[in-house]
Design a protein around this nucleic acid. Sequence first.
DNA 1: TTTATAAATGAATATTTATTCATTTATTTG
DNA 2: CAAATAAATGAATAAATATTCATTTATAAA
Lengths: 199, 199
Amino acid sequence: MNIYSFICFVKPRDEHKIDQIFQATLILVKQKGLAGITMSEIAVAAKIATGTLYIYFESKEKLINELFTQCRKSSVDIYFKDYESSQPFAVGLKRIWFNLLEFRMNHFKESVFMDQCYHSPYITETTKDLTKKMIQPLYKLVERGKAEKELKELDTFMLLIFMVSGINEYVKHSVYSEKKITKASMEDLYNLMWDGIKA
Amino acid sequence: MNIYSFICFVKPRDEHKIDQIFQATLILVKQKGLAGITMSEIAVAAKIATGTLYIYFESKEKLINELFTQCRKSSVDIYFKDYESSQPFAVGLKRIWFNLLEFRMNHFKESVFMDQCYHSPYITETTKDLTKKMIQPLYKLVERGKAEKELKELDTFMLLIFMVSGINEYVKHSVYSEKKITKASMEDLYNLMWDGIKA
DNA sequence: TTTATAAATGAATATTTATTCATTTATTTG
DNA sequence: CAAATAAATGAATAAATATTCATTTATAAA
């Protein structure tokens, strides 16, 4: 019995399928890029029929966009997990930095997918702008770091970009050379970054 | 009169067209990604007929691969311009770092194209491996920096990746927000990096 | 100027890929 | 269990795209 039963809608959608489709798409994009995926391949990888794909997503463009939206949402959730702007600056910074690293490590496929989408015909400028807006707290944090004389007096965007750029590249390298990322190496990378930005 | 004339080959290829095709492809890939380009669009952008494209490149795959190879070659040429391993460590490091920055700035389209190719059905693992080999001198330089106690005693790849990662992201941001990169901001970024890695 | 030849063209064709749809299957209520 | 309904299927179709090819054009030597 559900909300629809009185008008006799039966056989509800298997909402689990959306996740199957998303996972299949992420795996394929990591393997061969956005340029290399087809709807029928996605269907095969998700273990459903091609037609079923169109019950859940009206077009390839919609599928890519909805997946992008979900990835962005989950990335931002992770970025700011356990972060409070009331924390001391250094604590908040370390918290967010390790969250960024965690996302790249544990959601590598999502990262690759989002990178690929950025230069693609699927994602609009509006969507890209929204992505920028969602990282505003990070921008605020850097401004605060400068105000509290904890950080060098440099352009906020330069500091921000510098802070996060090493993460992306380091995780990418580790994944492709199949090297494990240890707790010690995470700390090393953090210290490289910190020694760069500290006042 | 050229080498072929005695066997009566006439109307030689316009070798300038290869460059037109490459430039058109780079512009299109920057605009809409590898997933968004078609052979006929490339032809239009290069101001030639679709069929002409196939006189110069036997397939789309070949075109992408040859463009990738040329981009890699020109990038490596620039990376090691005016660099001599006989220079003092700090001089060599700064030289290469600024060369990397120059490439990203003045060959932004090429950078975007190469990034996109990395996860694509066009570029083989062999090609990717070759790319890694070509940056060996950079790896050597970092090892030397550690030996001379100029750099922190950390994993060479971590140092290497940290050294270059800021460049990519900073140039990307500057291009998209249409901010000019000043000589001063280049120095700032270099110092952020240097303060991070120095012993 | 003629001739030989390959480049250049772009419409036509082949191929690939997205999308639809007639049919079958599964689910839930009465 | 029957009825009702949407999900699921995958072959068929439509649309997009890569590639070919018959024809025209341009070049350079004779």
